[in-house]
Write a protein that binds this DNA or RNA. Structure first.
Length: 534
RNA sequence: GGCGCGUUCGUCUAGUGGUCUAGGACGCUGGCCUCUCACGCCGGUAACAGGGGUUCGACUCCCCUACGCGCUACCA
């Protein structure tokens, strides 16, 4: 059988069919993104179809996070949940009449049959074949193609399923847009079940029927479906449907391995250094905003994880774009318009691409750091609020303080949630906690520095202009007059003001806190240091 | 087991028979800058899975092996 396909890019319709599992997986997003880009590039439609055939449970609540994830990422759909469209409903659980009609057609034209074998009988045949190391081909002993045969089997108390009556000779040839010409022998295919004995339909059938009914032009999906394609082509042709073009994407692999990425192996991934680093970083933020960091819901293979800790959707999308696709040997950054413009299936790679948390983070930093100050402030505010560091409707004083803080933080903020590493700027002056080590090294065991601090605290009140620049020149003059280097005061002062050994530029810290706070913090730090000396 | 897909630096990749002593990015690393931490700047490290062909010539084409992944479900 030769299947001719005529590429028609004038009416591109592609789809992504998420299962309502509650989580939007990074690999799924990559597949959806490629579909979306393909549609947008060709001015076609991107359709979301909910694959809820096998779970009757709460679909709505399990679907919402997935839809929210797509919206957040800027992957919008032309037809599907919430917006519907000419091929509604877009929930497979509500399309069973279509599937039943398809089964009737298949039965009527002899492409499928009622099979009355008992599961153990069928299994016995298969096992026998395996034992003899030969290709299993069902004997079709319990196939019923006439009312008489049906009556006979039913009289024996048998149930039936619907099986495809697959060709047993020749080959299925088709062209894959990514892999080239494919050829599979029909004889390797089984008489797959398309409808269970309870009348519910199986994936291959529903998928093909929906693709046909929704006029899908290109099926762009993960490589694991490549071997499923012949049976789907058989179904489509038996139903008289026009075949879509196929494109099978490489899978997304685990960090540092060639195994397929899975959402159920967090424990294993946490053994990967880079992955663990990202997770720990995220967990630190989650803790500060009171978020449950349970691995099932909070995990760097799930899109929500990134949203919760303050990633930019742009960086995720840009990173994912490059996971299996490239434009050339140098271009790495693409905004929406550029990726839509540049995307083509021709440049999709064949080999699996492994998920690299470090490179994703690098993209995030690039995008984050080039944002305007106001935009970074806007990103950071929700985190401060969630952590209880600011009030729900901050006044202009608070806002300008946050702005100054974000400015001082500069490129120390990789994720918006990183702002919570600087909570000492929101604490009361007498509630600063000191890092044990820093306190000891810079204040307790540093008598000269402590004395210097005392001196500074005595003269500091005279300084009127408390801008960073002014503070800097004041302190530089101060140490010069004392005949010591900057190193004598910088570290002690930073620890006294923030409790930490590392942080922003010292003069920014002074300026941010303001003169009063600085003086209070210095004297408190000195007291604590001297007390712990005894 | 059978069938199919895949294999370039640690990772993402460029490369479609000579331009490859294999290019870029992330990472790692040496140095500079510097009040710490970052940032930034300059430099470095590192790959064609292995073996056979084909060819004047192979990362590029063919075959085999190895490894990885998938299909072989009344899962999707």
């Amino acid at each position: 059988m030769i299947i001719e396909m005529t590429p028609d890019l004038s009416r591109v319709r592609v789809r992504f069919a998420p299962s309502p599992t509650g989580f939007l997986h990074i690999g799924g997003v990559r597949t959806a993104l490629f579909n979306w880009l393909f549609a947008r590039h060709h001015g076609g439609q991107f359709i979301l179809r909910v694959d809820d055939t096998d779970q009757a449970r709460n679909v709505v609540s399990a679907l919402q996070p997935i839809l929210d994830g797509f919206k957040w990422l800027g992957i919008d759909w032309d037809e599907g949940p919430e917006c519907d469209g000419p091929h509604a409903p877009y929930f497979q659980s509500k399309r069973s009449d279509l599937y039943q009609k398809a089964v009737d057609t298949l039965l009527a034209n002899g492409s499928a049959y009622k099979d009355y074998s008992r599961p153990e009988e069928f299994a016995a045949e298969r096992q026998a074949a395996e034992k003899e190391k030969r290709q299993f081909i069902y004997s079709r002993t319990w196939m019923a193609e006439t009312p008489e045969a049906e009556a006979k089997f039913e009289a024996e108390g048998r149930d039936h399923v619907i099986r495809l009556k697959m060709p047993r000779e020749g080959s299925c040839n088709f062209h894959d847009l990514i892999r080239g010409d494919m050829s599979f022998n029909w004889a390797e295919e089984q008489d797959h079940v398309v409808q269970r004995k309870d009348g519910s339909s199986l994936y291959h059938l529903t998928s093909v029927v929906d693709d046909g009914e929704m006029e899908i032009s290109h099926v762009i999906r993960a490589i694991e479906h490549l071997a499923n394609t012949p049976r789907q082509i058989f179904i489509a042709q038996s139903l008289g449907l026009e075949l879509p073009q196929y494109a099978h994407l490489p899978f997304v692999a685990e960090p540092g391995s060639s195994n397929k990425l899975s959402k159920r192996k967090l424990d294993k991934y946490l053994k990967n250094h880079d992955f663990k680093r990202l997770y720990d970083h995220g967990a630190r933020i989650a803790e500060k905003i009171g978020l449950d960091a349970a691995p099932e819901t909070f995990n760097p293979v799930i899109v929500d994880f990134f949203r919760e800790i303050g990633f930019l959707p742009e960086s995720i999308v840009n990173y994912l774009l490059l996971l299996g696709w490239s434009l050339d040997d140098k271009t790495e950054e693409f905004n929406r318009a550029e990726m839509i413009q540049s995307f083509s299936l021709n440049r999709v790679n064949k080999a699996p691409a492994s998920f690299d948390p470090q490179k994703l983070t690098a993209f995030q930093e690039r995008y984050m750091w080039r944002l305007e100050l106001e935009d970074r402030v806007a990103l950071v505010l929700p985190f401060l609020l969630k952590a209880g560091l600011i009030a729900p409707e901050p006044d202009s004083n608070v806002l300008s303080f946050v702005k100054a803080l974000v400015d001082a933080a500069g490129e120390r903020l990789s994720f918006a949630g990183d702002i919570l590493d600087y909570e000492e700027f929101f604490r009361a002056d007498d509630a600063i906690e000191f890092e044990e080590k820093a306190l000891r090294k810079r204040l307790v065991k540093a008598d000269a520095q402590r004395e210097l601090l005392k001196k500074l605290a005595q003269s500091l009140p005279e300084l009127e202009d408390f801008s960073a620049a002014s503070v800097e020149s004041y302190i530089r003059t101060f140490v010069e007059a004392e005949g010591v280097g900057m190193g004598m005061i910088v570290h002690a002062l930073r620890v006294a003001l923030t409790g930490k050994a590392v942080g922003f530029g010292l003069f920014e810290i002074l300026s941010l806190l303001g003169k009063e706070s600085c003086l209070v913090r210095i004297s408190r730090a000195i007291e604590i240091a001297e007390a712990s000396k005894e």
